[in-house]
Design a protein around this nucleic acid. Structure first.
Lengths: 165, 165
DNA sequence: TTTTATTTTCAATAAATATTGAAAGTTTAA
DNA sequence: TTAAACTTTCAATATTTATTGAAAATAAAA
């Protein structure tokens, strides 16, 4: 099983784009590979097609399952695990939003709550408390928007898009 | 010039949060420091308060200027450069959105256009072309939303927020 | 000019992250 | 049971990214 030149390029491109999104290059490549494959792939397939080690293939495939972007699939009569990507872009987008919100936004909210509660309301901390309050208001709003997006469907998104413009 | 325990904590917290946002830790710390300082700071100040080297302080302060989050300020009768953060959370948010959109979304759009134009419309590339099309549609929409946000004010944002919910 | 203060650069080094590959673990079949 | 097929783990290693600090560059003052 071998990739065409264009498929190679898609996978490589996705890897390096993923990289400046703060996502592990191999994880992005494995995801790209599974996205353009019409059937689920085994660890061996991924190793061969991406020229990576068994450990790397296994760890990143499982990370993608954990992110909810890939399903582990069983083929009757075959002992191997196969991995297949969810193909619906809206499902993917919602899933990524959910993970990133949990990992990147919620910790900010918690940190700000903690900072605020511990900080004396004196002259020395005036600027800091202003910043904390502003950030808190803002972050909570952004968090709500993403939460809403996670729970909504494509149609809701189009309606909002229209209203915004 | 020395930070209180709480100010230290704010700066440290922002550094590590910045880190899992894919932002250089020191850059996030310098930004945090300038955000809670009521006056602009010199390189020397930043070095002392954050315990970092001159090169590091200088490079990250300038990176923040390049991101449009910090201004270089001159004090009459003083030869040193001072750095002061923009304090308005909406200005900050719009500026970050702008930079990240340019660096993270626009390259995706270009890459997809290029991939699409080069890829033969045959059986072998059927799945890939479907994914490219879906991603293109989606990415263009997201890009527009962010562009709109960059150009809008706080009130627009509140109105949209209401309509969304 | 020359000196002094300050900023910038960048090669060397350190720190953080990702990858390998072989050993240990697990599951199914003989 | 035991063996074979496969997956998982993780210490060692490689790669990437960030930081230092001193030398070079720049700008202001003497």
């Amino acid at each position: 099983m071998k990739l065409t030149e264009q498929q190679q390029k898609f996978v490589q491109t996705w890897g390096s784009l993923g990289n400046n999104w703060g996502i592990n290059k191999t994880m992005a490549q494995v995801h790209a590979l599974l996205l353009i494959s019409d059937k689920a792939l085994s660890t061996e397939d991924m190793m061969e097609m991406l020229q990576i080690s068994r450990g790397n293939a296994n760890m990143n495939a499982r990370a993608l399952v954990e992110w909810g972007l890939v399903n582990k699939e069983m083929v009757p009569g075959d002992r191997r695990d196969f991995y297949g990507a969810k193909k619906d872009i809206w499902v993917i987008a919602r899933q990524i939003t959910k993970m990133r919100r949990q990992r990147e936004i919620e910790p900010i909210i918690s940190a700000l709550v903690e900072l605020k509660s511990e900080t004396p309301n004196d002259q020395q901390h005036k600027e800091m408390l202003k910043r904390v309050d502003d950030m808190q208001d803002f972050t909570i709003k952004i968090n709500k928007i993403f939460e809403k997006f996670e729970k909504s469907d494509e149609n809701w998104f189009y309606k909002v898009l229209l209203k915004m413009m």
